[in-house]
Amino acid sequence: MTGRVVHLLTGGAVSLALFLAVAAVSQWPSWQSVPDEAAVIRLSLRHGGVRACRPASEEELARLPPNMRLREICDRRRAPVHVRLVLDGQALIDRAVPPSGLWGTGPSRLYARFAVPAGPHQIALWLAENPEGDGARWELARQVTLTPGENLAIDFDTEAGGFVFHEGRREDG
């Protein structure tokens, strides 16, 4: 055999061994992202907090064109909304979620993920626009039984009445 043919064969063998090793590392070893006996709860919400408003004075109204004379003057910035997620009596989230945007004019947005053991759980959710005042608030308490690997997605939609549990392979209690 000529040198070139030998190199084709030996080089090919070396390359094949390398490429098979690459193919192996391309899928192995596997990574345990979530433990086998765990499920995941994802909470995602988007809700605009209230704006601080006050009655406009007569002088302020007089300075405005007639078609822009609103009775109240409101800040651009929204107030944060307060969110609480309690799982089996333990608070996983309990905080004020600030408004989005450079000037705080956008809605408060939250996305959180928790790996929890599969099995029955008591979930309590609470969202308030103004916890100290009389703003709107939503609450939901629910018993769920999570199966291993289940993804329980909890969304928030005021038109649907507040917190929404998205159906997966979940067994509600």
Binding site: V22, V25, S26, Q27, W28, S30, W31, Q32, S33, V34, P35, D36, A38, A39, V40, P148, G149, E150, N151, A153, H166, E167, G168, R169
Partner: peptide, 14 residues
């Protein structure tokens, strides 16, 4: 399947 979560995944380590 977004109703479940991938637990063990065969990663492409490259």
């Amino acid at each position: 399947d977004l109703s479940t979560v991938p637990q063990a995944v065969g990663l492409d380590w490259f």
